[in-house]
Design a protein around this nucleic acid. Structure first.
Lengths: 169, 169
DNA sequence: CAAGATACGTCAATATGGCTGTCCCATCTT
DNA sequence: AAGATGGGACAGCCATATTGACGTATCTTG
């Protein structure tokens, strides 16, 4: 996109307003990549009559056992009511269980049951297959760049939360 | 991660079954990055009483003027009925117009009106601000990696379509 | 200890964006 | 002339999200 290499007097325009092509490319690849990856687990979910919303909850509970409801709400950024139905479904299928918090008994600590662990692992396999293939095709340096750009898309406020998820990897 | 540097007898396990941490990290960053980016335009859309589905159509019509309905259906991978409602809304607001195809008059060629162009540009500004900031923070080499990994997530069948979008950039 | 804040649950109503199945019309192809 | 294709439209359904109000148990603090 026509960054004029002329006019050396004017300072380079802010990068925020340059590179429309690069931005469009990112928007499109993000759209296709994200939607195609998420589609890869729909079949597995459908076997249990569950949807993507259930998977998101399942995934983050698997990731951080003993997560509380309010922590999960922050991660998913949906309302309590929306999450409520999802957790009811997961509980009814015996995939998730809750216990009272230890230091604060108002809290509910969320955990996967053994069935939940097995089911999440099955779904994760599909994600792993797709992502690992993409990583392998792109090469390790690309993976680092992939992460860096995505991190930059997360508002600073949310980064603490994301970092917390990954702290004990 | 722990790829054991020991056991030189066993061949390295298939990369598809290694690196759970890296895969989880990718899944999470993709989730947060994608959802946060898309949220950045919700406000602008709400001013017109439109949703994300409308934006996706608007975006790809902006990207490829004179797109046909069936091409757009392939890109979005939704049903004709779902797209129909979206296009009706966009047409009613004077953002999108159609003309009969030139070589095949059954086709409808989709285009943004001047209002549509202006509105899409406004929404795109929000995306550009977010993405360009992430690009700048990550550095150009990272951007390349970001693209490569995402390309790898797109099923080979769909890559032609994505490449077509970007061919005249 | 009483008052208030917090964690969670729940009711009712609503919006959005998908889906299936069916049928129709106009136009192109053979 | 017959069939295939591009597009539109009907009816009904489902999943996932929303807001707002209210209830209960528990923790915190003056």
């Amino acid at each position: 996109m026509a960054v004029p290499s002329s006019s050396p007097v004017t300072p380079a325009a802010s990068p925020l307003f340059l590179r429309e092509h690069e931005v469009r490319r990112g928007v499109e690849l993000l759209f296709f990549g994200y939607t195609r990856l998420t589609r890869s687990i729909d079949e597995g979910l459908a076997e249990h009559g569950l949807g993507r919303a259930h998977h998101r909850a399942l995934y983050f509970i698997a990731r951080q056992p003993d997560l509380t409801i309010s922590e999960l709400l922050k991660i998913l950024a949906i309302t309590k009511q929306s999450l409520g139905r999802v957790l009811t479904d997961l509980g009814a299928q015996g995939l998730v269980e809750t216990r009272a918090g230890v230091t604060d008994r108002r809290q509910k600590l969320l955990r996967l049951t053994p069935d939940g662990v097995a089911f999440e692992a099955r779904l994760f396999d599909a994600l792993r297959t797709s992502l690992a293939a993409a990583y392998a095709a792109a090469g390790q340096e690309s993976v680092t760049g992939f992460w860096r750009v995505l991190e930059g898309l997360i508002p600073p406020n949310d980064r603490v939360m994301v970092a917390a998820l990954q702290k004990d990897m």
